[in-house]
Design a protein around this nucleic acid. Sequence first.
DNA 1: TGCACTTTGGCAACAGCGTTGCTTAAGTGA
DNA 2: TCACTTAAGCAACGCTGTTGCCAAAGTGCA
Lengths: 409, 409
Amino acid sequence: MNVPALRSHNAALVLDLLRTAGEAGISRLELAERTGLTPQAVSKITARLRAEGLAAEAGHRASTGGKPRTVLRLVPSAGHAVGVHLDRDELTTLLTDLAGTVVALRRRPVDLGEGAGPVLDAVTEEVRALLTDGAAGGGGPTGAGESPGPALGPGPALGPGSAPGPGPALGPGPALGPGPALGPGPGPVLGPASTPAPAPVLGVGVAMPGPLDHHAGVPGRVTGFPSWDGYPVRDELARRLGLPVVLDKDTNAAALGLALGPESPGSFAYVHLGTGLGAGLVLGGAPLRGDRTGAGELGHQTVQLDGPPCGCGGRGCLEVLCLAAVARGELPEAARILGAGAANLVRLLDIDQVLLGGRVVLGAPEVFADGAREVLAGLGLPTPVAVASAPQAVAVGAAWLVLAPIFGQ
Amino acid sequence: MNVPALRSHNAALVLDLLRTAGEAGISRLELAERTGLTPQAVSKITARLRAEGLAAEAGHRASTGGKPRTVLRLVPSAGHAVGVHLDRDELTTLLTDLAGTVVALRRRPVDLGEGAGPVLDAVTEEVRALLTDGAAGGGGPTGAGESPGPALGPGPALGPGSAPGPGPALGPGPALGPGPALGPGPGPVLGPASTPAPAPVLGVGVAMPGPLDHHAGVPGRVTGFPSWDGYPVRDELARRLGLPVVLDKDTNAAALGLALGPESPGSFAYVHLGTGLGAGLVLGGAPLRGDRTGAGELGHQTVQLDGPPCGCGGRGCLEVLCLAAVARGELPEAARILGAGAANLVRLLDIDQVLLGGRVVLGAPEVFADGAREVLAGLGLPTPVAVASAPQAVAVGAAWLVLAPIFGQ
DNA sequence: TGCACTTTGGCAACAGCGTTGCTTAAGTGA
DNA sequence: TCACTTAAGCAACGCTGTTGCCAAAGTGCA
């Protein structure tokens, strides 16, 4: 790591603390404590962030006998990201601001079986529509002046992005390079930017079912739709939209979104029961992808030695047992089986929480949550179980694929 | 991260590359390529490392039409670590150099049931004996002059250690702080140190069964021996030996040692079948501990819904089924069950290799390896299965608990 | 009302990081 | 012998976070 990388690193550190502080904000001295940097260093860094339009002062704390601390906040409208959830039968596209708040949302049916070409046509249409229609207002509740809608196109790069590391591979297309920072630039530095430039769209995150090559942006095996295997989704979409594109598995994206959202525990599993059964794992705050983005293949865990055969070649796979129970209408039994799978995760990975999601779960959230809770309690595990209720959790997570690197995640 | 932390970080980066290069060594330009730093920066960093006695020049590569590259190597004898494996019925202590090579080894029976006091007496005795008897020679095959044996005692600190981060908690006792570096210091910088100071022992790593609080250095629950629960093993041992002590679960330590040893894949699971069944997980090169050091609890994975009851409150736990088969003398069946557990790991975590170890496995290594291999192959998983044959794998891993932070791991 | 005290946060000088530009060292090949 | 190539050190430099100092903006007591 060299000195510019150090600068990016610390800026991302501060930016992430601003993000997690949310609307409550955070003072310079708190930032210094949390980062381990000196107050003076934090002052310099936040001054740069304010000049770039990413942070703003927002009131003061009560005095404790001296000068009151100035509260700083992230300016969510300083950038936007597109999240695309490409499910087997539905396409969800949405636009979020820097804080991950959904600004605009579109949904339409789609059939992955039609093949990559027609489906990517649909994605392109939806994203274009989102960026022209949905681009009105949407500024956060900062009160520091509404910004105009996000501007389509590459635009200047935002924040730290040049540090070599395991971040998602962005590109080709317009790269998120070091370059000059976004916003009003180093011109008028005083206070909130008087005439903020249109906040650019930083990129497009795409979440798809099945394992894929996350770095190359190529699906590996979309079960049931072999025509997608190896299709260069990322490069093709980046070419069409003129924006950086990141690709990841649906459950991984959902887990990322939940990890960076509010009230996220350090380690948790997002268990998704929809047309299939999968999990997204977040360990110590970081999503676990695996070298082949294959991590989280919960559906084909053997939980019944010599049980009923599964299409994967195994026997007694969790997915088969669980979905069979669902098909029989025995939801409590399905919940019990799902609970056993969740308990295995909790014990193996020492995680703090289980989040359930997916269409089947959302059809009877309490049944599944209670069923899983009961299994865990029976094993003496106090791990809380909750339902991730937002139906667009995956699409929001897809947008976080773009946003996360800005915050050093 | 501040500037001194940056310096430590890059030094650790270079040191780790020197370590992995082993006896073959690595040139400055290769280091520059691999770290992303400029050749000049690498020159400065390696000059410091040579001045500290941690690295040395060792010959030249063949010329490719210009000045031949100078090969640099780690000086393994520049530091030593003690590894302690405290098993239920046996105590293994060993001394390694910086490269993790075992320099001296002691073994003796012990009974954890006697309680912490008497057992720690034994550990103290063994470590003292190791450091006085085993301290003769043992310098690596560097050919750069044999160093005298390791010197007991705190001595000056070695390498980077002040960076705040998730490294193992060392201490209290003599801290591995920033302080001046080990070796001849910035006096005579030319060539290999002419009269190297005795290489100090950097600390003691202890591996024990069962989950424990890794940061506090306190065992949580040593199954069958409740008298250990909550005993301050780390602090007590650090006080007696006057050395920093790090504590971890046995399987985690073994996995760490295997991860940092030669020929380690990026992600693997070390599956240990001895008096119990557990696993150490290494994902992307980093060991997974979990917040409560509970990760790797493979033994109580449910693989037979509604199967035979287990002492843990569950039914159909992998450990119960597997050990029952062993007790019946049906080793191939035990291997098949173990293979199913390993397959679950491979699929869930997208790992590259399965390493088997532990007393039961070592009693019939081929039976278990073949049995597990067969299960994986039947599921279409090409993941290689190997046996970690060294009986002191856990003790070596314990020593790596001390060494790993030096290399930024 | 006035003054001492506390706390925040910016300005300026500074040490030290990796980088850049250049030079020297040490080989190959015609 | 000489031109060329490659490796690696020296010196100057830009920029990082740090340190020392001081102004700003509050509280609290006389």
